[in-house]
Amino acid sequence: MKSGQLVHEDLEGTAEGVRRAGRGWKFGVRRRKVRRFLLAGIVAVLIGAGVAVALGAYKGEEPVQRPAGVAARPDQSPPRQLIAAGNVAVSAYYTVKAEKRANGDGALAYTWSLLNTTTGRYEETDWARLDVAPGMKIAAVLERGLPVHRIGMVNLATGKVERWIKTEKGVGGVQFSPNGKRLVATTYDINPDGLFKDAPYRLNGKMVPGPKPSRTGFYVIDAASGQADFVARPPRKDDHGLVVGGGRQDLAWTRDGKLLWEPWATKAGRVFYSVDGRQVPVPKSEERLSSPGAVSPDGKLVTGRFVGGSDRIVSEVLDARTGKREALVPGQQLLAWADDDWLIAFRCDPEQCLPAKSEFRNQLILASLDGKHVIPLSGFRTRSLGDTSRWNPVLSIR
């Protein structure tokens, strides 16, 4: 991964059968079948200081040198203290549950826990949405009651809002650019996480409240000055004139921070826009890749898809230039590079989930690129996707 480039996780949440997955990554065969709506994920950045802890047992022969600054919490799920390895750390995590609202409506409600850079511990917040700038000093936050007309800039050492950036349009999602100098703030007419009685869909033979696409566009904001330029970009439609996706349709930055993108049914899995809203061709750096994976620090490799099955749990690593498979690494989902030789991933316990029985009872691991070594970083998440205590990490570079 390039220096200063953000890494994000496939933000995962389940409530009353509504599955939302972010930014194109896939966990496994059964999970892919139940995804209904796309959710742009939220990205954050890490603190600079590591926390030294016991690593716990790793599997395999003595590995290549482990990344610096490994902080493993194999007994914590969700984590209470910093989890980190090499270039990457868990900077925040969230849980999600479905709430009932008036008149038969509902919403997906997110609870965010953010790393306090002074204490090295995760603290629950009351923000509806957040993202963290490179350097782990400032977070952009949105208040509850989305969409909202101001973006708070929070000092992560104190948890206090230092200033507000006001917007004319209502904002429902926000993300820093990889260098932290700009924000993209996606705007909506109504709550992008809302579930509405008059937009039902069929779930297990029953009609339940569903999302409504209401995106109006986006702001590109200078983080230092607060200067915000609005671009209209309503929900995208397919060849038949139908809106694709759910209520949340946040725009995200490309890895180099030059373009914006949203998920779409193309070979690259995305459609790209300039910062002034013009659709542009797929960049050459993306055209051979099937997902917006994380790039290794030396820029040579990129994480790919889950390619395992009933007999093994592996995901592929690709040549960043050609898209050719270069390695298979243990894990259902490769999330980020700790360094050029180690990756952070989600993986279920092979002794319990093969053949695919408990694939959702998984934990964060540190896995070597050669596929021989695994170090647990967190405890196991609950195997029930509908459990509101099931936490979803945000991974960021230091």
Rank of each mutant, 00 (worst) to 15 (best):
A54G: 15
S368G: 13
G308L: 04
L242M: 10
G159R: 02
S296N: 07
V374W: 00
F196H: 13
F176A: 05
T95A: 07
D75W: 08
V45Q: 10
E124H: 05
R121C: 03
Q249L: 14
S214K: 04
G205P: 07
D370W: 04
G386P: 03
I83P: 00
P134D: 07
D250G: 15
G245S: 09
A54D: 15
F196E: 05
Q227L: 14
M1K: 11
R121D: 08
G60P: 10
M153D: 08
A224M: 02
V307P: 01
W264N: 03
L39R: 13
R288I: 01
P67T: 11
M1L: 12
G69L: 13
F196Q: 06
E123C: 06
G17R: 03
T119R: 08
A228K: 07
Q65E: 14
G293L: 04
E124N: 09
K372G: 06
K212E: 09
T216F: 00
R73C: 05
K284A: 15
R236V: 09
Y219K: 03
S384C: 01
E12M: 09
F196C: 05
V154T: 04
R233W: 07
F196P: 01
E286I: 00
Q363A: 15
K169Y: 08
S290R: 13
G371E: 09
F380G: 00
L203Q: 15
A107P: 00
T117Y: 10
D126E: 12
I151V: 15
A54E: 14
Q175M: 08
S315Q: 05
G22A: 14
R361D: 09
R278S: 12
W25P: 07
V43P: 00
G194T: 06
G50Y: 12
V394A: 04
A68N: 10
